[in-house]
């Protein structure tokens, strides 16, 4: 994934898209007030300077799908583990809720289910059958919309062809108006995301921690 901070407008479409795609339950005002809201992707905002010379920075942060993910070795049950494709997968059924992985994740992108999720009927009809629901006591997080990856692959397989670059679109990427989010195969040097990851504007978040994230952030530019 690549995130172009120069074109991200902070609109939050990705946040809602992720909720809609991944059956993330809303927790309600009272729970949100005590830090139980779950946003697999969040748009961080940072103020810089003071009035009137003030600037604001937006930065969408989702699971960085680290190559050396600190959340993986600490998980006692392999609920958090690495797939052969290099994704950091989360097996909800295998999670016993130690929350250790969330502590170890430097990006704070893992969210714990404090209660069984509930939907006021018939809001449950909005649920995506391709994504499992998480019961109380498990950890959940951005999966890079693994169900969409799988779906696109199955489609390509059925049509007996290779996956096209850009064919897989996670929900957040799909929704983003300025196309600030780009998803693709980093193993393919020709893919758009690979090209962006080689940009001179590119960097990864908290590089010095050594997590080797697979999300590249392209710096915002300034010009007057």
């Amino acid at each position: 994934m690549a995130v172009d901070l120069d074109s991200c407008t902070g609109c939050g479409a990705c946040v809602t898209a992720c909720h809609a795609e991944n059956n993330i339950s809303t927790v309600g005002a009272e729970q949100a007030a005590i830090g139980r809201a779950k946003h697999w992707i969040r748009v961080e905002r940072y103020w810089e300077g003071d009035f009137p010379d003030v600037r604001l920075k937006f930065r969408p942060v989702m699971c960085q799908q680290c190559d050396a993910a600190p959340c993986e070795p600490v998980c006692p049950t392999y609920a958090s583990h690495h797939t052969e494709e290099g994704l950091n997968a989360q097996v909800y059924n295998r999670c016993i809720g130690t929350r250790y992985c969330a502590n170890a994740c430097p990006y704070n992108v893992r969210f714990f289910d404090f209660f069984n999720p509930s939907w006021d009927k018939p809001l449950h009809l909005q649920l995506n059958p391709d994504v499992s629901l998480r019961e109380v006591g498990v950890m959940e997080k951005c999966t890079f919309c693994v169900q969409r990856i799988k779906s696109a692959k199955t489609q390509a397989q059925a049509e007996d062809r290779e996956l096209k670059d850009g064919e897989i679109q996670p929900a957040c990427v799909q929704s983003c108006p300025p196309k600030a989010l780009v998803f693709g195969d980093l193993n393919d040097p020709e893919s758009q995301v690979s090209r962006l990851s080689r940009s001179t504007r590119g960097s990864t978040l908290l590089e010095d921690i050594g997590t080797r994230p697979k999300v590249n952030y392209l710096a915002r530019q300034t010009q007057l």
């Binding site: 609109c11 939050g12 479409a13 946040v15 809602t16 898209a17 909720h19 809609a20 795609e21 809001l123 909005q126 649920l127 995506n128 059958p129 929900a171 799909q174 929704s175 983003c176 108006p177 196309k179």
Partner: peptide, 25 residues
């Protein structure tokens, strides 16, 4: 189950705003 931007549509070109995403509700 999910609303997405119509990629053919000249106005939103496949994207949606957060409100449009929530229109499902």
């Amino acid at each position: 189950k999910k609303l997405e931007g119509n990629p053919l549509h000249p106005v939103n070109q496949g994207a949606l705003c957060a409100r449009g995403q929530a229109a499902l509700q």
